[in-house]
Amino acid sequence: MFLSFQQNMASSSPTLTIGVVGFGHLGQYLVDRLLKDGPSLGLTLGFVWNRNSDKLKGLVSPELVLDDLSSFANRQCDVIVEVCHPQIVIEYGVRFLSKSHFMVGSPSALSDADLNQNLRQASEQHGRTLYVPSGALWGGQDIQRLNDSGTLKALFIRMSKHPSCFRLKGDIPADLKEGRRVLFRGSVAELCPLAPNNVNTMAAAAVAAGMLGFTGVQGEIVSDTELQDHHVVEVEVTGSDGFSVRTVRRNPAKLGAVTGKATYQSFWSSLLICKGHGGRVYLC
């Protein structure tokens, strides 16, 4: 049975039309929430695109399926949400911002300095907002405030997962499939191209910590076979005059899942914020 959408005509607030790019687990969750809860919140689904359109059959009404992503502008969406792969950000990010606000679900793409600058310029030029969802990052707004005050000195993030949860460039060696092993430690700028689907939390932190940027924020990914049903995200923030904060987040997740369960709700909450904040980058 096709999911259908009925606009809530009784809503007094302006309706925002949302385009969803990607129909993996996260994309399916957002589409489902938009169809079920969107009407009461003034949100309507404008289109859904997936690289394999066959995956949408029987799940999304045909009129909502966008076969050719290059024709996205014809759907006249207020916000476009990417939840599939950094390559889409590279190929379409600037074009999306020329027509709509853009929520980038793969902020690891922003580790490319040239792309980062081009997106910021497009955002400013067109008066659109480039939204970066916090995802699994805890305390992102606090990091941003510390950064904006000029007192942020250092930021370190460690993400620990079962080896089946990593989507790295290249296969995980056999000796990493048992026990705990550090796979990489270094700048987030170096890490993002190696694990683009796993370190979006770190990328969001690098956006929040603009003074440090992707090069200055340090990250570590850890393979741990003990983590059968959750991911662990540790954040260490250092400010001036001896100030420091350390948080540890346990994020429930199925074995092999790239994204933790709590992150799905976090993305939905971020989307509800995307109502336009001018020509700038906005952590949501």
Rank of each mutant, 00 (worst) to 15 (best):
L45N: 01
N8R: 01
G210H: 04
F23G: 04
N251A: 06
V281T: 14
A203V: 00
R120C: 02
K169P: 01
P193H: 03
I18R: 06
S11W: 14
T215L: 05
V31E: 12
L115E: 05
S70V: 06
N198P: 08
D171Y: 14
G256Q: 06
Q87P: 02
Q141N: 05
N118S: 11
V89Y: 03
S266E: 13
A257V: 02
R181V: 02
R33W: 14
S270Y: 14
S40F: 14
V20P: 07
T247S: 15
G278K: 09
T15I: 13
S61W: 09
A203Q: 02
S4L: 14
S111W: 06
G239I: 06
S240P: 04
L45F: 11
Q218K: 10
L191Y: 02
L110W: 04
G135K: 12
D114M: 01
D148W: 02
G22T: 03
I18F: 07
R185M: 14
I143E: 07
A205K: 08
N200H: 11
V48S: 13
G216C: 05
N200V: 00
K261W: 11
P173Q: 09
D112I: 15
F102W: 02
N8M: 07
A203N: 03
L66W: 12
Q141M: 09
K99P: 06
L41I: 08
R181T: 04
R128S: 15
H231G: 06
I18K: 07
V232C: 12
V237S: 02
G242C: 03
A113R: 15
S108I: 07
K36E: 14
N118H: 09
Q125C: 12
S4I: 15
G239L: 05
G210D: 02
C165P: 01
G22S: 00
S111H: 04
K99N: 04
D67H: 01
D78V: 13
T259R: 10
L152V: 13
A10Q: 00
A174N: 11
F23L: 11
Q76Y: 01
N74V: 06
G219R: 02
A189K: 10
Y282F: 11
V199L: 13
R33S: 13
L130M: 11
L30T: 03
I221S: 07
L34V: 09
E220F: 12
L69E: 12
S149P: 03
E226F: 09
Q265E: 10
L119H: 12
H101W: 13
G127T: 02
L59G: 04
R180L: 07
F166E: 11
D241I: 11
L97E: 03
E178Y: 06
E124L: 12
N116L: 08
E82H: 05
G105F: 00
M202C: 12
H277Q: 06
G135N: 10
L152K: 10
F5S: 05
M211R: 13
L43E: 05
W49A: 03
